[in-house]
Computed example of a mutant assay.
Amino acid sequence: MNSSTTRRVSGGPVLQDDVTEAITDSFFEELAAVGYGKLSIEAVAKRAGTGKAAVYRRWPSKQAMTVALVSGAAVAATSTGDTGSLRGDVTQLLHEFTAALRHPMTARIMPDLLAEATRNEGFAAALLATIGNPRRENAGRIIRRAIERGELPADTDVELGLDFMVSPLYWRLVVTNFPTEDDYLERLVTKIVSALAA
């Protein structure tokens, strides 16, 4: 009998976690290699050493698989641990965001997914619901904690503040792909904290 951990989908079959992990790894490898447009469940299954049925038992379609796996990785990459100060929280967020954006797999996958989102409204809406909104909500906790501590005014514009927090870094690392000096994040944090407090 296989000793791997198993779990049961409500009303469905028992799923083996080691198979799910193999499919997940293979999905990201295949996505990075061929892009979303050429991605196929058959290719992911073959790379994982399993059959298409194993993939379909977990996700009903290529889009569902992509949204679930990409969103799980993206949201997990951003924590909102309380460091005790606004500056500390923003610093932690930007360091984690930088590490995620500089990961070789992310660098290959993200531009392709964003391009697909411009062509596919349903895909774009799914990414917003499962990645954009949760990550924005996580980052919003940083601003709300700072308000509670008295570091920011009670009438701070949280929505505008969220735009300030990650957009400059995303622009620098993803859009322009400019190099960053050793003290870049420290200087950026200073600007962001000052803008939030203004």
Rank of each mutant, 00 (worst) to 15 (best):
N2C: 04
S4N: 15
T5A: 14
T6E: 14
S10G: 03
S10M: 03
G11P: 10
G11N: 11
P13G: 05
I23E: 02
E30F: 01
A32N: 03
V34C: 13
G35Q: 05
K38Y: 08
I41T: 14
A43F: 04
A43E: 09
G49I: 09
G51N: 13
G51I: 05
K52N: 11
A53M: 12
A54H: 12
V55Y: 02
R57V: 01
W59C: 00
W59E: 00
Q63W: 00
A64H: 03
S71W: 03
S71P: 08
V75R: 06
T80S: 15
G81E: 15
D82T: 09
L86F: 09
R87L: 07
G88F: 13
G88V: 13
T91K: 08
Q92G: 12
Q92N: 11
Q92R: 15
L94C: 11
L94G: 08
L94F: 11
E96V: 10
A99K: 09
A100N: 09
H103E: 13
P111Y: 02
D112Y: 01
A115R: 08
G122S: 02
F123W: 06
A126V: 00
L127D: 00
R136C: 04
E137Q: 13
E137P: 00
N138A: 15
I142G: 07
R144T: 15
R144F: 04
I147N: 06
R149G: 13
L152M: 12
L152R: 08
L152K: 08
P153E: 07
A154H: 08
G161Q: 03
V166Q: 08
L169N: 04
Y170V: 15
R172K: 15
T180N: 02
D183E: 14
Y184K: 06
Y184R: 05
T190L: 06
A195Y: 07
A195F: 09
A198M: 10
